[in-house]
Every structure is written in structure tokens, then in C-alpha cells.
Design a protein around this nucleic acid. Sequence first.
DNA 1: AACGAATTCAACCGCATATAG
DNA 2: ACTATATGCGGTTGAATTCGT
Length: 415
Amino acid sequence: MGRHTCCYKQKLRKGLWSPEEDEKLIKHITKYGHGCWSSVPIQAGLQRCGKSCRLRWINYLRPDLKRGSFSKQEENLIIELHAVLGNRWSQIAARLPGRTDNEIKNFWNSCIKKMLKQRGIDPNTHKPLAEDKVGEAKASRTSEGTSGSVDLKVPAAALESLNDAARGPASSSMPVFDTCAVERKASPMTKCFFLDQFITSQSSSDPVSVFPLAQLSFATDCSSSETALADLSACPNPLWLSHNSRLLEMNQDFHRNTISTCLPSVPTTILSTSMDNSAQICAGIDGMQYSDAVYSGNSSRSSMNSSDTVEMQNSSSFHNDIFLWPESTPDKDAQVQFEKEPEDLKWSQYLDGAFPVSAATQSQSLSQPLHCDVKAESPSVFSDLVSWHQIQQQLQSSDIYGKDFQMLSVGFGQV
DNA sequence: AACGAATTCAACCGCATATAG
DNA sequence: ACTATATGCGGTTGAATTCGT
């Protein structure tokens, strides 16, 4: 345990990487992939430990990094996610395409923390600083009375910000979330569950439908989809939150169906179950207009390979932090892209920016923590996506599903 | 222009967990 | 089951850069 064995070896360079070292590492990974990180420095002729190579690649050299300053949306998302996840930077990073955990962590520590303090918000608790002290005292009193209570990190600040957003001009019909209601629901038995990806639709004739498009992501204190699901099964009163902490009012049918439909999912499965069950899993969400399908997620590493991730970059837009459906149809370039086998894509070409990757597709295919993107061992998702395209085309030609279908395609990954 | 303070951010460290043998 | 090794994560450090005087 502890320090990596290669770190004990002599003559290993430390400190900043030189351009020559970067070049060696890029060339090596471009040509061979990283494989076993501990062997990378030897094979690449670098006087570094594998760990250092990995870090350099992940945080600086990999081509799908966004770089540049954080957008307002990203900033808000980080704050909301932090309210739920705490300092789980890797999980937060998984929901911010092109950003690394290190980058987000630095941004949090250098900028957001300061900003929140200036606004009178405790960056740790996400509550107003003055109120926080009262809350602490209250918490200590209640904890004396309730042993073994669940540490429910209900994102009060996030909900506050959502309420602010909901009060905005673009969201007159948005639900105004009642933070008190959340607290009421937050009995010791309550747990929060998150859907990585779902879609809502609303028409005059149909009730709002919710399609749980991806796997159950995580619970506040669960390590995997499986444990989250086990918890969900045992939890009588779960709180459903979207990836960015939005509170979802779900009825019991939704809970039951989610258990049966949300587990390790591949795109075709998602499609079929979601489409088949869409009528059954209508949930009681009133007036919900946004979609959280903007970021997908593959937080469940146990069930999905990172290269299987279907990540969507919004070609849509936010207004007042509310997701707006795109008017345009899916990007045809992106479709062409996915119809190619990943093996056809030369990594070196990618590094050179040679092959045509639309902005949307770029983050789709490469937004998740790398290392798998280089290996490109699992083309299954691509074939699934081809199927998806075929179905999509059929459905579009039939013109039956109209806007719902458009929503689905957007949520599915803007393919 | 020069200096020190503040800030940023790449990289390191140590630990926990996963995996292979 | 146990041990050694590999990987990933979050906290921390410190060099480089920016800012203020």
C-alpha cells in the first residue's frame, strides 16, 4: 500500500513537465494507448513514474479537455453538485465534460469558495453563514436524539438557487421547489437518489412523462448503482434528485419501474424499456419543463465502460439556468460520426484535430475520464447507436412521436 | 521599475480500493 | 485467504504568475 513502487526508483524526475516529456508521452499514448500506466514511462522513455504520467495525461495532455475559464453554467452546476456531493471532485467532474477533477477542485478552492463567502454562504454547508451556526446547534441537538440517522445532504442552497431560477421570467410555469418540503421529507430513513439522465415531456393531452434513460446513478452514500438500487429497494421514502440536485416528485409507480428499468443499461435497452414503459411510468411532476439530459453520466463504473458513455453536449441552451429544448434537428455530422467504428478513427488524427468532430460529438465521445477512449476496446455503444439511428429515422419518418421523440433524441445524446 | 502579497494551478503525496497472482 | 501491485481519489504543496503599492 501507500506509495507506488515505481516512485522508489532512483533518478525519477519530479516537478513540471518539459515540452519534450509531453511530446514523448503524447506520442507513446497516441501510438500504443497507455495500457498499464506503470509501464508507460519505461516504454515512452520517460524518467517519471507511471502515476505522474497518468496525472499529466489526465489533467493536461488528453485532447478532450476543454481548458479555458469556466462558464456561468458550469460554475452553477459545480455549486449545485458540490451541495449534494461535497468534495467528490471526480464525481463532479464526471458531469462536466472536458473538465478534470483537479481543475474543478482548484476552481472551487480559488474562486467559488471565496465567492460564496462574499455572498454570505458557507461553502461547506451551502447555507447562509449566520443561519449555519444556528443550524449546527440544531443539528447537534437532534443528533443526540436520533442515533444512526442518515446524513442527508439535501442541497438547500441548490434548491434555493432553483427557486430563484424558477421565479425568473423564462420559467413562469416552473415548479417552485419547497425547501421546507424537502426537510419535512428528510426523515432519518430518507435517502437521496439521482437520475443521471431523464427526460420529461408535456403535452396538452398527455400527463408529464418521465423516461429514466440511464442507469440509476448514485445515492448520496452509495458506492455503485447496485448498492444504490439495493438502498432504493429498501428505502420507503426516497428523494429523487436530478444530476444537478433538482428535486423530483416521483410517485410509487416511478419507484417501482425505476428499480426494474434503471439498472445497468445500454442504449438499446434504455430505448426499449423507456419507450415501452413510458406510459406506465408517468410521474406526478407538474409543470416541469426542463430536461436534465444535458449531461449524462457514467458514474457507475462497475456497470459501464467509460467508452460506452453516451454523452450529450448541449446543442441546446440554457436560459436562467433552465434547459431549453433545441429547435434544430440532430446534427447530421454527429450521426455520420457515430456510424463509424471507433477503430476507424485514428488517434493521431484526432490529436491533430483532423477528423470532423462536431462540438456536440466531441464531448459525447470523449467527455468521460479518458484512458478508455484510447483503448477503444468497446465498440458496442457505437453499434447500439447505429441501431438507435435506424430507429430514430423510422420514427421520424412516421412522425408519430413528434416533439417527444425530439426530446428523446436530445436526451439520448444528440446523435 | 521594484518589491512583496495574493492568487492560480500543475504536480505531488498518502491513502483507499481494486485486481492479479 | 493472503500479498503485492496498480489505479484512482482528495488534500496539500510550492513554483509561476498576477496584482497592488
